[in-house]
Simulated assay, not measured.
Amino acid sequence: MDRQAMRELLKEHNEQGWEAIWRLSDSPPWDNGQVQPLLRHYIEKRGLPLPEPSRDVKVLVPGCGKGYDVLYFASLGYTAVGMDISPEGVRLANAFMEKQGDVKGAEVRCADFFVHEEQYDVVYDYTFFCAIPLHKREEYAARMKRIVKAGGLLITLVFPIKEELVDGVEQGPPFGYTPQVYTKLLGEGFEQVLDEYPPIEVDNRGIKRMNAFKRAA
């Protein structure tokens, strides 16, 4: 399935379009089939101020897809929760995790981020923010302020860095934005502790930027 076909489904079905996409393809355009290389790089190089691994430390990955990053956080010793609004996406994620054998500390839930109330020590967002329509961005920021614990960490891989509108029309998903958009949305209460282009070669290096925000204690 190409990106344009995906966009048409979402225009026609709104949020239910994600379910339609997963039912049509178990490898949609955003599924890269592995742990996000930049996430692995920053964690292994200790470029993120993460808490020490413990099952008492909860990590959320909204819009987790098949759960590659959920499994990675769990493998490090955290309790990792993946979330997706599509039942079929969650089914595929659970099927994938079952094939991996020991998945202690990892789970994927079918849930709506925008009504979620649990709190987390770490939230990792890759291709979730860019998947939501522009009119839901303020609601997204308000939810992050509720679920990231005091002193917690919000990690986001800003992608794609581009104009939000072209000739007045939303171009997405993925909907473009910049680190400045994210910082402004979060407002007071979050300190930006990382903002840089990838230090390693990755696909689309010029339109990805790694950011991290620490919630005030």
Score class of each variant (00 low, 15 high):
141 A>G: 03
38 L>F: 03
63 G>V: 00
200 I>W: 04
113 F>S: 02
22 W>Y: 15
129 F>Y: 15
17 G>L: 11
190 F>G: 00
138 E>I: 13
6 M>C: 08
22 W>A: 06
45 K>H: 14
105 G>R: 02
213 F>R: 08
213 F>E: 03
171 Q>W: 13
207 I>M: 12
77 G>F: 00
153 L>W: 02
140 Y>S: 11
166 V>E: 12
213 F>S: 00
203 D>F: 06
42 Y>D: 08
144 M>T: 13
42 Y>L: 10
134 L>Q: 04
95 A>N: 08
180 Q>K: 12
65 G>C: 01
98 E>W: 06
38 L>K: 07
198 P>R: 02
114 F>K: 10
98 E>R: 09
58 K>M: 07
175 F>H: 10
181 V>F: 12
18 W>K: 01
5 A>T: 14
85 I>K: 00
8 E>C: 03
133 P>H: 04
22 W>C: 03
118 E>S: 14
68 Y>K: 02
203 D>A: 15
108 V>Y: 02
49 P>D: 08
149 K>V: 15
76 L>G: 07
5 A>D: 08
2 D>G: 03
87 P>C: 06
137 R>N: 12
173 P>Y: 06
51 P>D: 03
30 W>N: 00
19 E>R: 01
83 M>A: 08
173 P>N: 02
124 Y>G: 13
135 H>I: 12
17 G>T: 10
43 I>R: 00
171 Q>D: 13
153 L>V: 07
18 W>Q: 07
170 E>R: 05
202 V>P: 03
103 V>P: 10
207 I>H: 06
43 I>W: 04
8 E>K: 04
19 E>S: 06
86 S>K: 00
65 G>V: 04
13 H>T: 05
3 R>P: 04
119 Q>L: 12
167 D>N: 14
133 P>A: 10
213 F>K: 05
164 E>G: 09
167 D>T: 05
37 P>K: 03
193 V>R: 04
75 S>Y: 06
96 F>H: 11
97 M>G: 02
23 R>E: 15
140 Y>R: 09
49 P>R: 10
216 A>F: 11
159 F>Q: 09
1 M>A: 14
37 P>R: 08
87 P>G: 09
42 Y>T: 07
25 S>I: 02
104 K>M: 13
112 D>V: 08
45 K>D: 07
12 E>C: 04
192 Q>L: 15
117 E>Y: 08
170 E>S: 13
143 R>D: 13
165 L>Q: 07
128 F>W: 11
16 Q>E: 15
132 I>S: 02
200 I>A: 09
182 Y>K: 11
110 C>T: 14
100 Q>S: 14
82 G>E: 01
146 R>P: 07
68 Y>Q: 11
189 G>T: 02
98 E>P: 10
58 K>R: 13
33 G>R: 13
52 E>I: 06
161 I>L: 12
172 G>K: 05
60 L>K: 02
82 G>F: 03
11 K>M: 15
173 P>W: 12
187 G>P: 10
157 L>T: 00
4 Q>F: 13
